[in-house]
């Protein structure tokens, strides 16, 4: 437990040791604002809410979260520091969770920095702030889910580009699983799988949060989703830490 926090603290420090973190946050904020104001028609809608903001968010996270996670283990492999880290008296899962916590904190910082949006809608009208809080919680859970997938992909390779592409592909799969494109295709052939696909879709679960509904089944889904990928990450590392 303590090792986990020591590793998380070191990792988070490493993010801010280079300008990469700042560049990343700036890109995130610019992209998210452009999508919200231009493509989302924030002003034209004439509504005091953050619906356009939250509807674009998972797609931005889909691209940017794998950019955070690609270096997580791939870089440790390339630099040889994985040998240093895993020959210290730490358990593999402590290192996995420590790195995950650090990356999640980084995402949380990026999300918190979108606060001017919240101020803007509150200045212009009377939004349902409870709904906004629920939306942020959902966004944080989506970010955590994509992070856990990306971290596991990063553990499979020493090549950051492969880690990035594999993570985007897998995250995209879990994002669009509930879309008609997938479900209609499946229901025509194996109807059972269509229901399963809808149940496993990250975006479908996120939708509830953006409407202000914090449902226990959704929270349980996100928690188990992250747990599954963190366990996968640990097993991948244990099996091939020296490769």
């Amino acid at each position: 437990m303590r090792n986990m926090l020591i590793i998380a603290r070191r990792e988070l420090g490493a993010y801010f040791a280079t300008p990469v973190a700042v560049v990343f946050i700036v890109i995130f904020l610019v992209l998210q604002s452009v999508l919200t104001f231009n493509m989302g028609g924030f002003f034209d809608r004439d509504q005091a809410d953050l619906i356009p903001f939250f509807s674009f968010l998972p797609w931005v996270l889909l691209l940017l979260v794998p950019a955070i996670t690609m270096r997580l283990w791939a870089e440790e492999r390339r630099g040889g520091t994985i040998e240093l880290l895993l020959t210290l008296p730490v358990r593999v899962w402590e290192a996995v969770v420590g790195k995950f916590i650090a990356a999640w904190c980084f995402c949380a910082i990026a999300l918190v920095l979108t606060f001017p949006m919240v101020i803007t809608v509150n200045f212009l009208g009377h939004p349902d702030n409870g709904m906004i809080v629920a939306g942020y919680l959902g966004a944080l859970l989506v970010a955590g889910s994509f992070l856990s997938v990306g971290a596991a992909m990063s553990a499979t390779t020493r090549n950051q580009v492969i880690a990035f592409v594999a993570a985007v592909a897998l995250c995209l799969l879990f994002a669009v699983m509930s879309y008609p494109l997938v479900t209609e295709f499946l229901s025509q052939r194996v109807p059972v799988l269509a229901e399963v696909a809808r149940g496993l879709s990250v975006n479908e679960r996120y939708l509830g949060f953006t409407r202000g509904v914090i449902a226990l089944p959704d929270i349980v889904f996100f928690a188990s989703f992250m747990l599954f990928w963190l366990v996968a990450n640990t097993l991948i590392l244990q099996a091939r830490k020296a490769d």
Partner: peptide, 14 residues
């Protein structure tokens, strides 16, 4: 154990 891995890896940015 005190262990020095091959190539003495360390976190370069620290």
């Amino acid at each position: 154990l005190g262990y020095l891995p091959e190539g003495a890896p360390a976190y370069g940015e620290m």
